[in-house]
């Protein structure tokens, strides 16, 4: 058992995947000699060579596009987008080709590819480095979209994503890269379609993912001090959504608050609220609440905390459900 960061857990997942599967390739901007701007690919080029871990020109669209060609050739590419908003130049290749190639070839061509995208804010960065693009990807049929909140989940989900025969958008909450956890590695892969109850409770459910799971847990802890028992569900997978786990939790607690960094408008919370309203209309004690950013471009670093969900905002939302 060693204490490692999420960044290191991802690094170990890539290392173990490269070791276990000779068809895995890791590439992107600065992933080779630098080891990635977040060092997630640190040491991999030295260990596995320049044919399996390589730098590419600075062109995200073709970084995504060669994943299509490599997957047709039977490789299992793991491509890195350097930051969330830098995945947008690749958007057409991801949505028009990577997501659709399996359908387009009548199932002949598996797109066994992972696009890793560091996402989310709270790191004091300049523009384009703090966005939450998950809604763009979950709205595209043919993609699986997952995001870990802990080093253990980061390892298990990335191993599963690389081994899955379908394209996976792997969203890494960059503010959590330095979070630590005791881990025994290698660990088995985690399912790509299951949410996880990370804190049991009875008086309400906080639904979070990636960077906001920690916020939800902090809120639940504070609530407990005030005598309220809140359950926290970590979605882990954004597409598909594990509605069974969500429904079971909210059936029990009768209240739900969805928390994400992305703008509330048309966010993941909108789909969850609609589903819970439909499936548990007679059970819900209050409307589903959503906590997220405003409908504004991601704000400058000095004011970003005003827009990001924090425990206080989550608790205010919980209070609204409890006082309804």
């Amino acid at each position: 058992m060693t204490t490692i960061t999420m960044g290191k857990a991802l690094n170990e997942a890539l290392r173990d995947a490269l070791r276990d599967d000779p068809r895995v390739l890791v590439y992107g901007e600065d992933v080779g000699r630098l080891g990635g701007v977040f060092r997630v690919t640190d040491g991999l080029r030295a260990e596995f060579g320049e044919e399996r871990v390589f730098d590419t020109p600075l062109a995200e669209s073709t970084i995504a596009a060669i994943a299509v060609g490599l997957a047709i050739k039977g490789f299992h590419p793991v491509a890195e987008m350097q930051f969330d908003a830098f995945s947008y130049p690749a958007f057409n290749q991801i949505t028009s080709n990577l997501a659709k190639y399996h359908t387009r070839t009548q199932g002949a061509c598996n797109m066994q590819a992972v696009i890793r995208i560091p996402y989310g804010g709270n790191i004091g960065a300049v523009e384009h480095h703090s966005e939450s693009p998950e809604t763009y990807y979950v709205h595209t049929a043919g993609l699986k979209v997952v995001t870990p909140s802990t080093p253990a989940d980061a390892y298990g989900l990335l191993r599963a994503a690389i081994a899955d025969p379908d394209p996976v958008i792997f969203l890494e909450p960059k503010a959590r890269y330095w979070s630590r956890q005791d881990l025994d590695l290698p660990a088995p892969p985690l399912p790509l379609d299951r949410a996880q109850i990370v804190r049991p409770g009875t008086d309400g459910t906080i639904i979070a993912y990636g960077p906001t799971v920690q916020v939800a847990l902090a809120a639940a802890e504070a609530a407990e001090a005030e005598g309220a028992s809140l359950e926290v569900v970590d979605l882990r997978s954004l597409s598909p959504l594990d509605l069974d786990t969500l429904s079971a939790s909210v059936r029990k607690t009768k209240r739900a608050v969805v928390v994400h960094e992305a703008p509330v408008f048309m966010g993941i919370g909108a789909e969850i609220a609609a589903r819970l309203m439909h499936d548990l209309f007679d059970v819900l004690a209050a409307p589903v609440e959503r906590v997220g950013s405003a409908t504004v471009p991601y704000p400058p670093a000095r004011v970003e905390k005003l827009f990001l969900p924090d425990a206080d905002r989550v608790l205010e939302a919980v209070d609204r459900t409890r006082q309804y």
């Binding site: 073709t62 596009a65 060669i66 299509v68 060609g69 490599l70 047709i72 050739k73 490789f75």
Partner: peptide, 9 residues
């Protein structure tokens, strides 16, 4: 670029 990716493969 698909062709190029395949060719790299």
């Amino acid at each position: 670029p698909h062709a190029v990716g395949f060719a790299i493969g």
